[in-house]
Write a protein that binds this DNA or RNA. Structure first.
Length: 433
DNA sequence: GGTACTCACCTTAGCTGC
DNA sequence: GACCGCAGCTAAGGTGAG
């Protein structure tokens, strides 16, 4: 029997990242309940200061609920570009100890420091070093978990965090280590929902089996678990319940899908309105496909109705495409087949099945020789136009130019990743005549 | 009653070709 | 020609994470 050598994995998680970044430019708000997120009635909370968490406010909570729980909280709209920039600085510090960094989100990452312990000391020493560096250079706090695998390191970093209590915020240890041999003693008393992959639906199924803690789950036969939650998920959870996780820290994770979706301040009821939004979303997806130098064969449409019922419709085209007009051409018939009369609150466009874009067929090609059809640009003209749009946006900003067919009652609005991360802004007042 | 956005992965079902 | 089993692809929906 072979055993894999013990690894030293760190999970570094920034403390209330978005809020902490905001507090650097608003020191007057330090010590106060502050939340970052959607400011409109349809928004959600992206991050809450520990003072706000004392009132039960947490991320992903509807903004309206947060306002009710903590009316005195300061609500900030969020600045995705700034957070991305600060995140890059944080990751630079991570790279100062190891090249094996797997970004998980803007505010957290896994680090494989197995090869760095001879240089910098053991995992705990590296954890403290990183915490000190992040604080000295960026005035931000983070928590570090140290363990033989990713999954345990993640749980450990959570145990290292500050704890909001009704009486005040209690500092966490900052660095928590799960040593080899102590995995089960750490893991089994935890509630089963602490496991990666146990969300509300899985939790309910497991509760039916009387499973409350990770230890309970470990005692369950793998076959019973597979019957309850499916093969892949069941086998994975069984492994995790015994502290087993051999996934490597992946430095270059390949992107497999790309999407833009948007919740509207008010429900839309007509195809005309929806078509305008579709063009905008497709333009955003197309820009990012071009940026990554790829195209997509499968284009999907997502529609969420007023009652929150959500449908998805997809189409796969013969060759990968990336121009916005080709995406619109593919997805528009799917939209036409949807009845918007009940009201549509969200529209989304996604691209999967990536591949090198083939030579594009234009409408001209389709109508070639028939003498029919509109006078439309050729495929090369489309491509040249979109490259020019990219150049203008990189020089003058993302909102400098956009598709004319996307201009509607709300003016020209261009889709950028993260631009509307946490829901629509406060709905504009009705137009006055 | 309220519930964002982005991405990954899984399950199920239907279809097609061999 | 009809049928079966299998693999591969696609579509749709669900779940979970951060």
């Amino acid at each position: 029997m072979t055993t894999s050598p013990t690894r030293t994995i760190l999970h570094v998680d920034m403390d209330a990242f978005y809020v902490s970044v905001e507090l650097r430019r608003r020191p007057d708000l330090v010590g106060k309940p502050v939340v970052v997120g959607g400011t409109g009635n349809r928004g959600v909370i992206a991050a809450a200061s520990y003072e706000a968490r004392r009132y039960g406010v947490f991320s992903a909570m509807p903004s309206t609920t947060a306002r009710r729980l903590c009316p005195d909280a300061v609500f900030l709209p969020g600045d995705h570009e700034l957070y991305a920039q600060v995140s890059a600085e944080v990751h630079e510090i991570f790279h100062s100890v190891t090249p094996f960094v797997e970004p998980l989100a803007l505010d957290e990452a896994f680090l494989d420091v197995t090869g760095a312990v001879r240089l910098f000391g053991d995992g705990v020493a590296i954890g403290h070093r990183l915490r000190d560096d992040v604080w000295q250079r960026l005035q931000l706090r983070c928590s570090v978990g140290v363990a033989p695998n990713k999954f345990l390191a993640k749980l450990a970093s959570k145990a290292a965090k500050p704890v909001p209590k009704p009486g005040g915020v209690i500092d966490g240890p900052g660095v928590v280590e799960v040593r080899p041999g102590e995995e089960l003693a750490f893991l089994h008393p935890l509630p089963v929902k602490a496991l990666w992959g146990v969300g509300p639906a899985t939790l309910e199924r497991l509760t039916r089996f009387g499973v409350r803690t990770v230890g309970d789950l470990a005692q369950l036969e793998e076959a019973a678990l597979v019957a309850a939650v499916g093969k892949a998920h069941g086998q994975h959870l069984h492994q995790l319940s015994w502290g087993l996780d051999d996934r490597p820290v992946e430095v270059d994770r390949e992107m497999k899908s790309l999407s833009h979706e948007e919740t509207f301040p008010h429900d839309l009821h007509t195809h005309d309105e929806l078509r305008r939004e579709l063009v905008r979303l497709a333009d955003g997806v197309a820009g990012r496909l071009r940026h990554h130098g790829t195209g997509a064969r499968t284009l999907s449409l997502k529609v969420r109705f007023a009652g929150f019922h959500t449908i998805t419709r997809a189409v796969t085209v013969p060759a990968a495409v990336h121009p916005a007009h080709a995406i619109v051409q593919a997805v528009e018939p799917l939209l036409e087949a949807v009845d918007p009369s009940p009201g549509v609150r969200l529209l989304g466009v996604s691209a999967t099945n990536f591949g090198t874009p083939a030579e594009q067929l234009s409408l001209d090609d389709l109508f070639a020789g028939t003498g029919d059809g509109p006078a439309v640009p050729s495929a090369h003209e489309w491509e040249a136009a979109e490259e020019t749009i990219d150049a203008i946006r990189s020089r003058f900003g993302a909102t400098a130019i956009g598709p004319a067919s996307a201009v509607g009652g709300r003016g020209l609005r261009v889709v950028r990743k993260g631009a509307q991360q946490w829901g629509p802004d406060q709905a504009p007042p009705p137009p006055s005549n």
